[in-house]
Simulated assay, not measured.
Amino acid sequence: MKAVVLLSVLGCALAQERLFSWSDPGQPIQPDPTDNACVTDVASCGCCLMQKQMWKMESFFNMSLNELQRGLDRAHAVLNNIRVSRSAFSVALTDSRLCVGPNREDSVLKYGKVFINLGEGYNSSSGVFTAPRSGVYSLALTLYSDSGSAGSVLAACARLRLNGRTIASPTEKNTQDQEDSASALLAVQMLAGDHLDVSLPAGCFLCDDNNHYNTFTGFLLYSTD
C-alpha cells in the first residue's frame, strides 16, 4: 500500500512542468524569458540559424540524390529489359547458285545464309523461327525465280506461316517472263514460343545465288509480356 501511494505522489510530481533552483531546494522558479541564445548572444543565434539552413539544404540534397538514384535504377531496368528482349534475324536462301523445287509436296525452306541471328531464334537446320518473347514482330519475305528460258512456266511463290497457318502468300506465276520476283512485308502479333517458317508450295521453285534475291527477315518491334 505504501508503495502504491509513493508511486502516485512521484507521478504527480513528475507530471508538473516546474523548474526548481539548486541553490534553494524546494522553491520553484519561473523560466527566464531572456534565457535565449538569440537574445543574449546574437552571434550564437546567427550560427544556429545558419546550421538550420544547412540542415535543410542537406535534407533537400539527400532527397534529390535519392530521387535521381531511383530514376537511374529505373533507366537501367528498362535498358536491361531491352537488352534481354532483343530478337532479330535475317537470312538468305543460299550463298551460291541454287534452285529449289519444284516439288510434288509442300516443303519448308531452309535458308542457309545467315546474316544475323540476334537471340538465336532462327534455326537454320529446320528453317523455323521461334519467338523468344511475346510481342509485335516485323516480318519481310522476298522471292525470286528464273524459269531458264522465255516462255517457260515461271512459278515464284511461297507461304509465310505462323504455327502452320498461312499469313502471307506472295506469288508470281506466268509464262511471259523468264525471271520475276514477289515480296511481302507485315507486322504480326506473336506469343513466346510461336513458330514461324516459309513453305515452298508444290509446283513452285526459287533460284538464288550470292546476290541473295530470296531473303527472310524478322525482328521484335516491341514486347507485350
Rank of each mutant, 00 (worst) to 15 (best):
S223V: 08
A187I: 09
R104Q: 14
R97Q: 11
L160E: 03
L98S: 12
D197I: 04
D177E: 15
S145A: 13
L68R: 15
S85R: 10
V100I: 13
G119P: 02
Q189E: 13
T142H: 08
S183L: 06
P201S: 04
Q27H: 12
M63Q: 13
L6Q: 15
L6H: 14
L118A: 08
L14D: 02
T142A: 03
T40L: 15
E58S: 14
F205E: 06
A131S: 15
D95Q: 09
L160F: 07
F89L: 04
A3D: 15
L10N: 03
P28K: 10
T171L: 12
S183W: 07
S223Q: 05
E179T: 15
S64L: 12
M54K: 14
R74H: 07
D208P: 02
D208C: 03
N211H: 11
M57F: 02
W55M: 13
L7P: 06
N80W: 08
V9A: 07
Y222W: 03
L68S: 15
T171S: 14
N117A: 00
I167G: 02
A156Y: 01
S125D: 14
K2A: 15
F129K: 02
Y222N: 00
R86P: 00
S147Y: 05
Y111A: 05
G148W: 00
G203F: 08
K52D: 14
D177H: 14
L141V: 00
